[in-house]
Design a protein around this nucleic acid. Sequence first.
DNA 1: TTGATAACCGTACCACCATACGATAAAAAC
DNA 2: GTTTTTATCGTATGGTGGTACGGTTATCAA
Lengths: 215, 215
Amino acid sequence: MPRTADHEERRRQIAGAVRELISEHGLDAVTVARTAAAAGMSVGLVQHYFRSKDEMLLHAFNEVSAAIRDRAGERIRAGIEHRRPIAWVLAEALTEFVPLDERRRTEFRVTRAFAGRSLDAPALAEVDTETARRVREDIARAVHNGKECGEVAPDLDPWPAAVRLAAVTEGLATQVYRDPAGVNGTPAAELAESLIAAELATVFTGECRQYANGA
Amino acid sequence: MPRTADHEERRRQIAGAVRELISEHGLDAVTVARTAAAAGMSVGLVQHYFRSKDEMLLHAFNEVSAAIRDRAGERIRAGIEHRRPIAWVLAEALTEFVPLDERRRTEFRVTRAFAGRSLDAPALAEVDTETARRVREDIARAVHNGKECGEVAPDLDPWPAAVRLAAVTEGLATQVYRDPAGVNGTPAAELAESLIAAELATVFTGECRQYANGA
DNA sequence: TTGATAACCGTACCACCATACGATAAAAAC
DNA sequence: GTTTTTATCGTATGGTGGTACGGTTATCAA
């Protein structure tokens, strides 16, 4: 074996530089040269880890999408472990998609930029739709679990409910991003959290049986 | 006066070419040369009507945003004139934002592309936020009118309701765009319409008094 | 020690694009 | 009819950016 370096770590460094560049100056400002500079390496090295610029961008988009979804998933996992009501857990998970702090705002800007470019880049579009599909499935699964627990009415179809919850979350995320100050004096953050909670309340209408049992 | 030509008409032609180019090949494919070719004129002529490419893009974005909003406004105006229930009128107006046919799909793609570029283009970002603000106001006004008519409970705050309706509409529009085939067998179009209707039903809970009167 | 392989650097090339510019034609004004 | 102004064209130019490429260093195997 020759001179060694952590391949995946380098790719993450580069993807991180891409993320910061997009968030601060937009996707058009991302050039291979600038990315290399931001990552503290040479142009040649970036080429060593990504055969083309498109591949580099795709990787960055994938990584950011995965990061968001992983955080949401982690919140769900932890919530389940602590025997929280599913509605409560889901509320926390969904707010991960809303740009309520710098990190989430950065990620939101990145996904927004890539969504725009997806128009003529099938590979990027697939990341977008695939991520959305997974989120929808996670939500539908949570609603389904709510039935077994007793929080959700047994005859409720999880799929329309999941689409609705995904839609409000995404829509509210956009609104919070555009007008963080909110509307009519109410900060957008408060508005988003209360509206998500209200929307969840129309799906999770019952009490969780596990609570009565004590688990 | 010298040699004459319809200034606004030419600008509309160019904006139309930009719209088609974006929708078919993405915002990155829009060059001044290609736009000129698509509009059937020379590069120099495009420059004659727009001092810079940015100005040209800004105009195109403005025009598309206005077109969508105008159609929604027209639906509202016509609905009011025909004494329709406000909930019904609003449902029609909101579906103008959902990409349910080719025209709306084209417009959706254009706004999506511009939203992505808005990250580092303040002028474009302003069009985005301003359009969203106006839509929100239109919805809030409709909810307010619903009170006088008797369709909306008198103590309901129109603003959170407007934010919520705008959010679901925008979110559903995105979902329909990404997966027109829908989820679990249900076409996205049906899903979107029924979910918007359901959301409206939580705001417009009463009957319109004008109906009883006959008007 | 030698050779092979991978990590890394810097640059040169090529294509593309926004914009500047000069030129021409036509219509209106005087 | 001359002048002025606008509509229209085509090209030249300067800058930028992706990628190809040649070169260097360091590590491990034989």
